[in-house]
C-alpha cells in the first residue's frame, strides 16, 4: 500500500466525505466521479431527475453496491471500519412485508450489532426499540404483524429501526415516497429533531417543492455532481436547469424559487 494522502480537516470532521466516487453497471457509469463533503449536523437532500444515480450513490456509499473507484470516509476513517456510525433507511419496497415478523421484531433488528449470539433479546432491548417506535408515533403497533401496516406506517417502522442504532449519520432513500401527509409530517419532525441533537442526515428526495422547507443543504446530482452547498446558495434556477437538463418549466421554477410561495406549491415533478 502507498502512503495515504493527507486528509483535510474538513474531511476528518465530516460524517460522510465522498471523493471521486464512480459506480457503473457494465461499462455504463450511473454515478461519475462525485465529490461531496457532508457538513456535520446538516440535513442534506440529494436531488436529481429519475435515473440520476441518487439511490445508487447511497448504496455505493453503504457498500451495498460495488464502487468502481473512489473513497468514502466517515469522520476521516474508511467507511467499512465506521459502519457502526451509519444508519440506513431503505426504500419500503425493498423487502417482503409478508415476512413473519411483528413491528417490534423489525425495529429490534437495529440492535443487531449490540447483540451477541449467546444473548437473548431482553427487556431493556425491547425498551430501546419501543422508545424508537414512540418517536415515530408507532408504539401502539409494536405487536402488529408488519403485513397489516399501511405504507406510511411501514416507512415509520424502517425509520424507527434506524433510530435504535443511535448513529451519527442517517442515510434515507426516498423516505417520503408513497406515504400519507401525516406520516410525511411526522418523519420530517423526527429528522429535524435529530438535526437539533447534532446528528447528520442525508436523504434522497424527489419533491422539489419541499426542499426549501425540509432541508438546509442540497446536493444536485445527475450522474455527475452539478452543485452542492447550502440550499439558499445552490438551489437556483441555473443549477436546477443544469440538473434537469432544461426539463423544468418556467412556472415550476418560479414557484420553487420564491420562498413565500413554497407552502402552497404542489409537487415539483
Amino acid at each position: 500500500m502507498t502512503q495515504a494522502p493527507p486528509i483535510s480537516e474538513e474531511v476528518a470532521k465530516s460524517p460522510l466525505a465522498i471523493h471521486g466516487l464512480t459506480v457503473s453497471y457494465a461499462h455504463h457509469p450511473v454515478v461519475h466521479s462525485v465529490d461531496f463533503v457532508t457538513p456535520p449536523g446538516s440535513l442534506t437532500a440529494i436531488v436529481g431527475p429519475n435515473g440520476a444515480g441518487k439511490s445508487t450513490l447511497l448504496k455505493a456509499v453503504l457498500g451495498i453496491t460495488r464502487r468502481l473507484t473512489g473513497e468514502v470516509r466517515v469522520f476521516g476513517e474508511p467507511v467499512e471500519a465506521m459502519s457502526r456510525h451509519v444508519a440506513y433507511v431503505p426504500q419500503r419496497s425493498s423487502v417482503d412485508w409478508d415476512f413473519p415478523a411483528t413491528v417490534i421484531d423489525v425495529v429490534t433488528m437495529g440492535l443487531f450489532r449490540d447483540l451477541h449470539w449467546w444473548q437473548l433479546t431482553r427487556r431493556h432491548h425491547r425498551q430501546r426499540a419501543l422508545e424508537s417506535l414512540s418517536r415515530v408515533g408507532m408504539e401502539a403497533f409494536a405487536d402488529r404483524q408488519i403485513g397489516q401496516l399501511s405504507g406510511g406506517q411501514q416507512q415509520r417502522v424502517f425509520l424507527a429501526r434506524a433510530l435504535t442504532q443511535q448513529a451519527e449519520l442517517t442515510i434515507l432513500d426516498e423516505p417520503f415516497a408513497g406515504v400519507d401527509a401525516a406520516t410525511e409530517k411526522a418523519i420530517v419532525e423526527v429528522l429535524k429533531q435529530l438535526k437539533r441533537e447534532g446528528r447528520t442526515l442525508l436523504c434522497v428526495h424527489h419533491d422539489l417543492a419541499t426542499v426549501r422547507d425540509y432541508f438546509d443543504h442540497v446536493l444536485l446530482l445527475n450522474v455527475r455532481r452539478i452543485a452542492a452547498g447550502p440550499v439558499d446558495e445552490v438551489f437556483t434556477e441555473r443549477n436546477l436547469q443544469a440538473t434537469y437538463g432544461g426539463r423544468l418549466s418556467a412556472v415550476q421554477l418560479a414557484r420553487l424559487l420564491e420562498p413565500a410561495d413554497v407552502a402552497h406549491a404542489g409537487s415539483g415533478r
Binding site: 457498500g63 451495498i64 459502519s83 431503505p90 415476512f99 423489525v106 433488528m109 443487531f112 449470539w117
Partner: peptide
C-alpha cells in the same frame, strides 16, 4: 449461533450489509 445473521439476511439483505 448464526440465527440473527440468517434472519437479517432473509428479511433485508441490503440492510444486513450496512450492519457489517
Amino acid at each position: 449461533v448464526m440465527r440473527r445473521d440468517f434472519l437479517l439476511v432473509c428479511f433485508d439483505a441490503d440492510f444486513a450489509r450496512t450492519q457489517g
